[in-house]
Design a protein around this nucleic acid. Sequence first.
DNA 1: GCTTGACTTCGAGTGTACTCGAGCTTCTAC
DNA 2: GTAGAAGCTCGAGTACACTCGAAGTCAAGC
Lengths: 121, 121
Amino acid sequence: MTHKSIRQAAEELNLSIHTLRYYERIGLISPVTRGDNGHRHYSNEDLCWLSFLTCLRNTGMSISIMKTFMDLARQGDGTLTARAELLSDHREQVCAHIAQLQAQLEQVDTKIHCYQQQAAA
Amino acid sequence: MTHKSIRQAAEELNLSIHTLRYYERIGLISPVTRGDNGHRHYSNEDLCWLSFLTCLRNTGMSISIMKTFMDLARQGDGTLTARAELLSDHREQVCAHIAQLQAQLEQVDTKIHCYQQQAAA
DNA sequence: GCTTGACTTCGAGTGTACTCGAGCTTCTAC
DNA sequence: GTAGAAGCTCGAGTACACTCGAAGTCAAGC
């Protein structure tokens, strides 16, 4: 099978069918090829992009920045450096976010221990 | 000075004045004591709680779970264990989230290197 | 030929967490 | 005594990212 239905794509990506259509509607992904009946056919390349977009989304990138990224990608190889820069910026933000989470996790830990000790006393 | 104005509190906590009033309005924090003129006075204890709530918020806890937590806290020492459990649950989620972020960061890194190599070629 | 189920479009609705603005009071300084 | 700054309440508005539902098409199986 060289392509997948929207249902199969949604299952594979852990996105809802609604979300897949939504991403296409807002122009985040390019229009997916259709069968004779008008149904969407998701190619491996489509799934690849969507999988990476899901990764960006899960790391906190906004839809509008993802759109900027995809617009660059659609413009071809001339934007490779720009794309690398956009992702590097994002990378920095994710790193900072992880560091912040780790610091705040310690605060939570402290509080947990505090409560456990008080409860035991 | 034993208490702070809403402006000072907002600055110290990096929250907006609107947000501080909002948290009180929805019952996340208990009503803050007021001066004769009706203005809020934030005590160190108020700031302490708000600071911890901000920490929970930044680690992704929803307002409604924070509210559950604060409701427990207001019930006194009988809920110490329950509070420790609630925070432990949250801790697990934060740990999982950090792990997920780190895994996805690698995907982003891979893509960046990919682009950099292609751009150099 | 009719039901069933998967798909389609389109516009509208939802949940979360703020965020804002109008209209009012109240204190301080001139 | 008046201007200006800071606070107050209350209801409404906003941004984001979906999420849903109505109404329709189309192909397969009975």
